[in-house]
Structure formats: structure tokens, C-alpha cells
């Protein structure tokens, strides 16, 4: 076992042991949120790092959350079945939106605009079907009495912390897996020159679809998880444009080219949101979006590799600036 694996083992053990040693509920709550959102941002960066900038991932997250909750409330379908169905629905939605885009080579800014419309449409659908979804007032999955595994409802924060930790770790594993695969080479080639990539024998449309599906399904899982944990979802918190933009912001700020970049982004966004909420209360509603916007511009100009990406680069090449 080398030093790297040893370190990884120690960090993993510490993260798993944490809720059993440290039981402050508010801090655990913030950590669960950070883990869930880290996973969502990681999901975004799986495709975002290849120049496929989606401003519609809030839509996938919303589908994940709402389909799971609606199936549970209206049809009594356990989230254990509901979540896979929600992931399928998000995958189907991704396919419907992305296939025409890729087939007809809607790329760059135009792709971003199409996805922006997607998150708007999902938001509108949720609001318009308010009789079923609660509309903009939000929606609550029916509570069971106490913790129930079948309903995926747990009263204690420790269980949720461990679930979120496992999913977050799985997200990182997927990130690494993509990073090591031929898919990464194919996507890097495609992001530079689609024609040349096609001439090299890459099925451009199929490769882009694969990565988009993966990213969308992962994001939907984040939405479902968020729903089961918070037991309250509203279009503003799990779908809509602000959620989509928040994903882009957090991933870019943390660093989209390094595995833990989106996690760093999540720590920053969640701390910022919580800080504003506690410090200024209802006065500060919407401030976080303003701050995100300003920071996003600054980061894209001055630190395009994000905080973690730039930091790691400095550490690897101490001689160069």
C-alpha cells in the first residue's frame, strides 16, 4: 500500500466515523447538504469539463426530485423503485433535448441556450401542474412514522450523512472512471474539433449523448436524494434557472478539471448561502445569486481552472508562477 492509498484510507475512515463522534445536528445538516450538492456539481462537471456547458441541469435535478415524490404520494411507489424510474425519466428527457442538438450540431453558446430553455420549461411544467405538484408553493413527500427503509425516510442525520457520503464518493469514482476512459480522449477531441474527431473514427453524436446521459442521470439522482433528505422540494430549490446557474457557478469556481473541484465549489456555495441566511435572514434573499454572478465573471477571467485547479497547479509546479 503506497502513501497515497494510505492517505485515502485515513480520509475515508475519518469521513465515515465523523457522525458517530461529532453529533452537532446543524453542522451535520450542512455537511449532508454539501455532500448532496457536491454530487450534483460533480455530475454537471462530468460533461461541463468537455465544453458541453449545460444551463439546464436544474431541469434534470427537478425531474429526479419530483418524479420520485409524485410516484410516492400519488401511487405509493417506494423511492427504491421511484428513484430508478425518475432516473429513467431524466435520461429520456436528456435524450429528447440532446439528440437533436448533437445531430444538427448545435454547439457552444447555442447549446447552452437550448439547455437554458430546458430548465425554464421544467420549471413551467411544475408550476402549471400545481394541482399535482404543489406548483411554486413546493411539495412534500408524505411522511411515514419514524424512519422507514422502504420509504427511504430516516429521522436521524447520521444515516443521511452516510448515504450522502456514499453517493458523493460514487460520483467521484465515476468522475475518475470517465477521466481514465477513452471517452475522455474522444470528448476532448470533439470539444476541439468535431470534424477532425469524426475523421478519426469517433462517433461524435454517440459520444456526446453518452456523456450527457451519464451527467443527466447523475444529476437526477442528486435531485431525488435532496428530496428524500429535505422532505420538501420547490421549483426554486431543485429546478429552475437559478439552480442551473448555481451548478455552473460552483463547478467553475471549484474547478471543473479536477475531481474535487465541484466539491470545493459546493463548500463555498453552501457556506455562502448559510452565512447569508444566518447573518441577514430574509433581508438577504437573492443576494447569493448576485454574489455568484459577480464571482463567476471574476473567476472565468482570472482563475478559469477554479480554486482547486489553480491551487493544485501551483503545488505541482512551484517554480512557475
Amino acid at each position: 500500500m503506497n502513501a497515497r492509498n494510505l492517505l485515502l484510507g485515513i480520509v475515508a475512515a475519518a469521513l465515515i466515523a465523523l457522525p458517530f463522534v461529532y453529533r452537532q445536528p446543524y453542522h451535520l445538516h450542512v455537511m449532508v447538504l454539501i455532500l448532496i450538492w457536491s454530487f450534483a456539481y460533480t455530475s454537471w462537471s462530468v460533461m461541463g469539463r468537455f465544453g458541453l456547458v449545460s444551463l439546464g441541469h436544474g431541469g434534470f435535478m427537478g425531474v429526479g426530485a419530483y418524479v420520485t415524490a409524485l410516484l410516492w404520494n400519488h401511487l405509493g411507489v417506494s423511492p427504491w423503485i421511484g428513484i430508478p424510474l425518475a432516473l429513467l425519466a431524466a435520461g429520456a428527457l436528456a435524450l429528447v433535448v440532446a439528440y437533436p442538438c448533437f445531430r444538427f450540431r448545435i454547439i457552444g453558446h447555442y447549446f447552452a441556450l437550448v439547455t437554458l430553455a430546458l430548465s425554464g420549461i421544467v420549471l413551467q411544467v411544475i408550476t402549471a401542474t400545481r394541482d399535482q405538484t404543489g406548483g411554486s408553493l413546493g411539495y412534500t413527500p408524505e411522511r411515514t412514522k419514524g424512519s422507514l427503509l422502504v420509504a427511504l425516510q430516516f429521522d436521524d442525520k447520521e444515516t443521511w450523512y452516510l448515504i450522502a457520503l456514499a453517493v458523493w464518493a460514487a460520483g467521484l469514482v465515476i468522475w475518475y472512471w470517465v477521466d481514465r476512459s477513452m471517452m475522455r480522449y474522444a470528448m476532448e477531441a470533439i470539444s476541439e474539433d468535431e470534424d477532425a474527431a469524426a475523421a478519426a473514427g469517433i462517433n461524435v453524436t454517440a459520444e456526446k449523448l453518452k456523456i450527457t446521459l451519464l451527467s443527466a442521470v447523475m444529476t437526477a439522482l442528486a435531485g431525488a436524494l435532496y428530496c428524500q433528505y429535505q422532505m420538501f422540494i420547490s421549483p426554486d430549490t431543485v429546478s429552475g434557472i437559478s439552480v442551473s446557474l448555481q451548478m455552473v457557478f460552483a463547478a467553475v469556481v471549484g474547478g471543473i478539471y479536477v475531481a474535487l473541484g465541484p466539491t470545493v465549489g459546493a463548500i463555498i456555495t453552501i457556506m455562502l448561502a448559510e452565512g447569508l441566511r444566518i447573518g441577514f435572514g430574509t433581508q438577504a434573499v437573492g443576494w447569493d445569486n448576485l454574489i455568484y454572478g459577480v464571482l463567476l465573471v471574476l473567476f472565468i477571467i482570472f482563475l478559469p481552472k477554479g480554486i482547486l485547479g489553480s491551487l493544485l497547479e501551483r503545488m505541482r509546479a512551484p517554480g512557475k508562477s
Binding site: 480522449y185 476532448e188 477531441a189 476541439e192 470534424d195 477532425a196 478519426a200 473514427g201
Partner: peptide
Amino acid sequence: HVPENRRLFPRLTVEGNLRMGAFT
């Protein structure tokens, strides 16, 4: 096919470009 204007992947290394040529 060696396309017109070469159409390399400019931000990949030389070896990365060659690797793409052997994608299938």
C-alpha cells in the same frame, strides 16, 4: 482522411493526437 488545414486537436499533445488517430 487527413483533412484540409490539418485540423489537429491543438490543446492535446502530439501523442494525444496520435492516440485519437487510433480511436477505433
